[in-house]
Design a protein around this nucleic acid. Structure first.
Lengths: 192, 192
DNA sequence: TCAAACTCTTGATCTAGATCAAGTTTTTAC
DNA sequence: GTAAAAACTTGATCTAGATCAAGAGTTTGA
């Protein structure tokens, strides 16, 4: 499924055939079965990972054993733990597959090499990072200003399609509320 | 106060004298009096802004007129609205000075030019962006997992010194709680 | 320098959402 | 195909933190 990644980068920037080949030469294809881990808490994350098919979640587990979902990533998105990658430190996060998933991985050394060698690749990566940062800012803003119901409505309007493929329990966790609260909200909003 | 910025970039990367001069040639020095705006909601943000002295806050105002503080930035940090900058769209944020403040501004065109011309500048900017993203992720994680008291303790341990120069009302807003709640938490924790 | 306007504190009360509990439906795995 | 395990729903009750209110500092600006 490398073609999906190929198509993605060609939409974002221009590459010569030689550059495309260079990029592909570093790509590692990885498949995950549903529930399989991509990263476990305590391990150091070493890749830049792009999803070509499927869906993963990034979450932490607290002292009481409850899970807190930090993010979902589906096809045409990136995943991983940037903090662990950058600091070369053990990750606080777990990442596992919600569905059978296919990814394209690059070791971070190779990824940085590509950034240095290919200006348009570097520029693309930078743009993606900026967008990720903006999305994170918006999520913070939402968590400060919205009620539980507004958070849910905001979520489904921002990510239509997610609600149908991700269990409600996980969505509730992502939104910072209990599954019971989400269930009641859904009942409420369905009426309207 | 350009020297403070000079010192900052030299700690982050290596620059030839010609490069340093090139960077400085684009710098705009800006001073803000306490309460003065750097950016008002509805305006398009056009700069990359570094604080050499002082402190600003970034916040939104909701329909009911209440303010929600998104972030504080002090000397040796960057500020601005990346979303407005990137999309060239009116900002949802206000940025104003909590203290008399001095900044170094670059128009975004000049800033991008510097990124293209000077690889170490580009690399530095990229690193900063990555760190900002990581910080945003951590803030999301904290907002999902911590109680009000834990959020406050986390804040003062992460940003010692902030508590003494920023009004409590604003800190409460940043942490997503009311000033009354923060006041009570401070009373509680002072005892221990 | 002094009144007006903020800022912080403390108490009383309220409420959105959490927790606990139990039943129902859906998914999974052999 | 079916039993066990998850996932979801619904109701009853509880609680962290919000809201409302009022007094005590502190800052500010003419």
């Amino acid at each position: 499924m490398y073609e999906i990644f190929q198509k993605y980068i060609e939409e974002k920037a221009e590459f010569t055939p030689a550059e495309s080949e260079r990029i592909q030469s570093f790509a590692i294809i990885k498949k995950l079965r549903k529930r399989q881990y991509l990263l476990q808490e305590g391990d150091v994350w070493k890749y830049d990972a792009f999803i070509t098919q499927g869906c993963v979640r990034t979450y932490t587990v607290d002292d009481k054993g409850s899970e807190h979902v930090n993010s979902f990533s589906i096809e045409n998105w990136w995943t991983g733990d940037r903090e662990s990658l950058m600091m070369q430190a053990p990750s606080r996060f777990n990442i596992d597959a919600i569905e059978d998933t296919e990814l394209v991985l690059f070791t971070h050394e190779n990824f940085e090499l590509l950034c240095r060698e290919i200006p348009s690749f570097n520029h693309m990566v930078n743009t993606i990072l900026q967008r990720s940062f903006i999305a994170a800012q918006n999520r913070i803003q939402a968590s400060l200003t919205l009620t539980a119901e507004e958070k849910y409505l905001n979520f489904i309007s921002k990510y239509p399609g997610f609600a149908s493929r991700i269990p409600q329990t996980m969505i509730a966790s992502y939104l910072g509320m209990t599954p019971e609260t989400l269930s009641r909200i859904r009942k409420q909003t369905a009426k309207k």
